[in-house]
């Protein structure tokens, strides 16, 4: 009989948490400092959570967008938290959200970012912006939703920073106005990034209720419960928006059981 002391960890699927962060000029100063500080702390916390999580191995990626977009983390693989150190972002330039989505469309693929022997849990993508998109993103978004199975199925959450953030655009990107949180001060922004990351990392370990809707709403609800209420609101402001927005993932109800689509 093999020695039980030689037991190794049970193999886990990988849970990608992908940060898509606005680093345009309007983010400069305290806002980008808050994001950087939050990300330093988040990486440490996620590392600890991932080690203790028996259901999923958390890995991260980060894409910054301003004039164009660039990967802060490796372009070819998700980052293992074990030895990852956050590099501070610098803000400046425009808000090319469409460029960021196009980059996601390109990299969310099994031959690019999503390489794994054991497969993945549904990726979580956190979009953070304080402004309005400066490029045309709508068609790019439509294409990503249509052609990229990973993007379409991903749990997408929007963080709207300050009064000027285009909540409607964020709601459109994440596909659901209920999956957008607005935040109005930097301390809360810091807390929000951290808490939303923690709840995202544990979404697969939470017991389900018979009234559960979808992962994004579950993450948002739990994040809201864990945050101090001051300075953060759920986006229910845009009355012209339907709950499910145009171009959202629910337009594509194909159940992808065909592995070649991934």
């Amino acid at each position: 009989m093999p020695n039980i002391i030689d037991t190794t960890e049970m193999v886990k699927k990988v849970l990608p948490i992908i940060y898509v962060l606005d680093t345009s000029g309007s983010m400069s100063g305290e806002k980008i400092a808050a994001v950087n500080e939050a990300m330093h702390e988040t990486v440490d916390v996620l590392k600890d959570i991932s080690e203790k999580n028996p259901d999923a191995q958390v890995k991260i990626a980060a894409l910054a967008f301003s004039t164009g977009s660039r990967w802060i983390t490796s372009e070819n693989t998700l980052e293992d938290l074990e030895d990852f150190v956050w590099t501070d972002l610098v803000a400046g330039g425009t808000t090319d959200l469409g460029n960021a989505i196009s980059e996601l469309d390109k990299k969310l693929s099994r031959s690019e970012l999503l390489k794994s022997e054991v497969g993945f849990c549904i990726p979580v993508i956190l979009f953070l912006t304080d402004g309005h998109p400066t490029d045309s993103y709508i068609n790019i978004l439509k294409n990503a939703n249509k052609n990229n199975t990973w993007f379409r199925h991903a749990t997408k959450i929007g963080i709207a920073v300050g009064e000027d953030a285009d909540q409607e655009a964020l709601a459109r990107v994440v596909g659901n106005s209920e999956a957008v949180i607005s935040v109005h001060d930097n301390d809360t922004l810091k807390a929000l990034i951290k808490v939303a990351s923690i709840t995202s990392s544990m979404v697969n370990s939470k017991s389900r209720t018979s009234s559960d809707t979808n992962n994004a709403v579950e993450i948002i609800n739990q994040t809201m419960q864990m945050l101090p209420c001051k300075g953060v609101t759920l986006n229910k402001s845009s009355s012209s928006e339907t709950k499910k927005t145009d171009n959202n993932s629910s337009d594509y109800t194909i159940i992808d059981l065909d592995e070649s689509n991934w």
């Binding site: 037991t7 190794t8 049970m10 193999v11 699927k13 022997e117 497969g119 990726p123 199925h153 592995e259």
Partner: peptide
Amino acid sequence: IILCNNHPLEGKRWVSIPCMTPAF
């Protein structure tokens, strides 16, 4: 799990699933 430290339903089929959506 206690005796084998593996989930009883997670084998080759589980490994080959690219993304654990509700349908998969």
